[in-house]
Amino acid sequence: MSAAGTIERVDHDRTRPAAILEVSRLTGTLNTARGPAQALRGIDLSLAPGQTLGLAGESGCGKSMLALAVMGLLPAGAQVSGSIRFQGQELIGASDAALCRLRGNRIGMVFQEPMTTLNPLHRVGDQVAEPLRLHQGLSRASARAEAARLLDRVRLPHAAQSLRAYPHQLSGGQRQRVTIAMALACGPDLLIADEPTTALDVTTQREILELINELVAASGMTLLMISHDLDALARIADRMMVMYGGSVVESGPLDAVVTERAHPYTRGLFAARPRWSALGEQGAKRRLQTIPGRVPELADLPPGCAFSNRCAWTLDACRAGLPAALAIGPQHEARCVRLNEPGFRS
């Protein structure tokens, strides 16, 4: 293509800024000990630049798999189909070299376990400097200086000294700050945080969450935050997505999802949070609400709606096939066949 004959990208919807991450019909199958498991079933999502998407769900619902699929880091033997477009570039089927250019560079990822995420034999400073030297070609000295700046930015105490520290010399919270610094080193456009606070104690959780929020706001980064802590997500997300059994059961603006809770699973999830009530308050000593049954293994999903065997409102139609996504409000949709029944959602 010569400069004269450059083909202009057609922007189908000029009223909406181009989505930074566009996932369509993403299906992923893993090889488990019990046979093939559909970890991802027809996921659709669209992230606008600068948005924060909160991805909620219990363990085993496939949210981590979604993150790994975007990064192209699913375990060996996994098969994906569908489309994942990052800044217009198709990621599924892309070469490893192309994906390597994006990882740590334009897309950063923060993992859950601070204790095992860092290489125990490499100094902290070197690990933070690694993406800088890899993607930006910085020299040893400038990468080290930049790493010190990054560690300072994530408010790691004694940042300069910590450069020469080994991971085992830091606490869990400090290691997580290092992981965040590593992920943000090259100034990515998209940050994926997979349960970044789950393995930390409560006070540290708050601090790390605030840190992430502040860094994202300061740089205008897009954030995909995965957590099973609904309150944490509610504090920082613009949009919320709830996953169960490998599919997205509800997704929409934060307020809409949190207040309306259209899908039965969302309803159950929010209701199951333990609530502090002052003594003597009306109904203070209510039983903890639970969703009956257990989250099924991905290899044992029931046909149709994955939630059908635990839902209080199941019909035969629920088992016929994965329910289509029905719109409930502006950019708010959920997968339930009974959504539009009068009185169902009150």
């Binding site: 990064m71 880091l73 490893d96 070299a97 390597c100 250019r101 994006l102 990882r103 740590g104 560079n105 950063g108 990822m109 993992f111 376990e113 095992t116 995420t117 860092l118 290489n119 125990p120 690694e130 993406p131 890899l134 993607h135 992981t179 590593m182 992920a183």
Partner: peptide, 17 residues
């Protein structure tokens, strides 16, 4: 199989690196 190898991949290192 360790987590830090996955982290290294997430930073953009290729298999050989």
């Amino acid at each position: 199989r360790e987590d830090y190898v996955r982290t290294a991949r997430a930073k953009g290192l290729n298999r050989r690196q």
